[in-house]
């Protein structure tokens, strides 16, 4: 069996949709962050696959992926720092408790 592009794209789409689903339904902030990571990684897979199968002559997608991984790491670090802050002031990282400003 030859692995064509579709065998990579469908898992990546499933990953992305799982990420969106988790982002919406999860109640724990760390779990939300994990869902976001899933979405970002699905993007990375897409870029690499498109580059590998459609435009093998150049490396633009690969380079974008490298930068995207770095950006995702920065995002996670900052988000965790803020989550720690939230935990210190409210003793909880459940999003249902972060609702003091809802009107």
């Amino acid at each position: 069996m030859e692995l064509t592009m579709i065998y990579y794209l469908i898992p990546s789409l499933i990953m992305f949709c799982c990420g969106v689903y988790g982002f919406i339904t999860r109640r724990n902030m760390i779990a939300i962050l994990i869902s976001l990571e899933l979405m970002l990684n699905a993007v990375d897979i897409n870029f690499v696959v498109f580059n590998r199968f459609l435009f093998p002559g150049e490396m633009e997608g690969m380079f974008f992926t490298l930068f995207a991984i770095g950006l995702a790491a920065a995002e996670t670090a900052l988000a965790i720092a803020i989550i720690i802050n939230v935990f210190r002031v409210s003793n909880s990282i459940d999003v249902r408790d972060v609702n003091k400003m809802k009107h």
């Binding site: 970002l40 897409n46 802050n85 972060v98 003091k100």
Partner: peptide, 29 residues
Amino acid sequence: YESHEAAIKYMLTAVFSSAVFMMGLSFVY
């Protein structure tokens, strides 16, 4: 307290939006 609550809301939506944006970019690519 409100400052932290605002920050976590901003952070999560910002990352979500940039993930959506980059997904669109990957199709454009």
